[in-house]
Simulated assay, not measured.
Amino acid sequence: MTQTHNPAVPEHELLTRKSFLRTLTAPDWLFALFTAAAALFAQIQAAHHMDVYETVILWSSAVSAVLLGWFFKPMRWFVPGALLAAYGAMQLYGGNIARTETFFLKYFLSSQSAIMWQCAFVFFALAAYTAGGIVAKRQHRDTNTLLGMGTAFAWVSAFAGFTGLLVRWHESYLLRPDAGHIPVSNLYEVFILFLVITALMYLYYEGRFAVQKLGGFVFTFMAGVVCFVLWYSFSREAHTIQPLIPALQSWWMKIHVPANFVGYGAFCIAAMLGVAELLAIRNEKNNRKSWLPPSQVIEEIMYKAIAVGFLFFTLATILGALWAADAWGRYWSWDPKETWAFIVWLNYAVWLHLRLVAGWRGRILAWWAIVGLFVTAFAFVGVNMFLSGLHSYGTL
């Protein structure tokens, strides 16, 4: 019997599809099976809390997690591990929030303790990456034990933060069974999400391009964010779980906010890579042996980060417009938050245009990415602090 295929699909695409499927191993399929089983278990356990939209989001997230695990192999242990740790915390709670004082919850698995571990390991990762970079510079080597420790600490920080968010989700239902919610409703929670996403994105690029020596740049910025989180937590008690205000009681929030922070994380990584590229360019211009990767490699990673961030930020902006239409009856109102979101979008649209169409390279794009960090930071935090509008519920 002769084998046939759809003539509408080019033969080279069929070969690409076959080769991708052939790359999937038994652990890949086991990961997919585990993720599907976890989603089914979550739906059965929380059916009384979920409507049709949340069910769609749950299974869409499961499919996305499988595809991400197939694309980025470490996610095959990261996602199941965090789910199992969070489920262990749920069992320790046993439906009673007062059990937070038990040993493992108090010091490891409650949301606040897990998030504190995340913050600590950000600093551990920064110290290891920085020391490893100094050693690499002296020994003229691309990697060493300290850099490897930095990578390990970065994974632990992301794992602890993601686990903490999952447990915090459960804790919100223990505190208020009728008002539990996904933990992306205030600045404290989204900063934790931001730290998780930024760490994971950096770790992907680190593994993809073998650039461990750039970890010190990215985690310097993340350490600054952790300092803000700690101040915000202790001075404003922002870590306490509060009920959702009416404006946020929407399923749109569950997809708009995470997409937004993939964009924010990517743009912040790009800014730190811009600093690294400027140093690399200076060393290359002065014919000095650089301990950093070549400036062209750094710029390529920066470009990929901005491209991914721009895609997700565009998606988040569209979702935000749909949410606005559902909540306020209009898609766009030039509210300060919306205006600055457009400025951020336009800034990186121009950056991509200049690189892809005009062919710009080098120092000017690095500086542009660095300045873009301040534009993004003002859109993220500054608008909440200094301007008022329809999004004023996000104030500090």
Rank of each mutant, 00 (worst) to 15 (best):
L200C: 06
K73R: 15
P177E: 09
A47S: 14
N6Q: 08
L58F: 02
I318V: 14
Y129R: 05
F228W: 14
I182P: 00
A307K: 14
W291R: 04
S392G: 03
A358Q: 11
L147N: 11
P183S: 06
F378S: 07
S157Y: 02
L396C: 00
G263V: 06
Q118H: 10
F108N: 02
T16Y: 09
G81K: 04
F123S: 08
H5V: 15
L166R: 09
E13F: 11
L322N: 11
I182W: 07
T25D: 12
G215N: 03
V297F: 01
V297Q: 03
R361Y: 04
F159L: 13
Y53A: 11
A39K: 03
I134V: 14
F153L: 10
A179D: 15
V135K: 13
V226N: 01
F103V: 15
E277Q: 14
L14I: 15
L15G: 00
R361L: 04
A349R: 01
F261D: 01
F374L: 10
A65I: 09
T23P: 00
S172E: 13
K106Y: 14
L84V: 15
F20E: 12
Y204S: 07
V218P: 01
L33A: 15
E189W: 05
I370H: 03
Y204H: 11
I281W: 03
I301Y: 00
A38E: 05
R168T: 01
Q112L: 07
V275P: 00
S250A: 02
M50W: 13
E171F: 04
A86C: 09
R99L: 10
A280T: 03
L174K: 13
T317E: 01
V344M: 02
A266R: 02
V357H: 09
T317M: 10
P80I: 06
A98G: 07
E338C: 01
L365N: 06
G164D: 06
Y87A: 14
W367F: 11
L278W: 03
M116H: 12
V56Y: 07
V196L: 11
D178I: 04
A131W: 10
R141L: 11
A307D: 12
A210Q: 14
R99G: 05
P246S: 07
W77Y: 15
L147D: 10
Q249T: 09
Q249M: 13
W251V: 02
L146K: 11
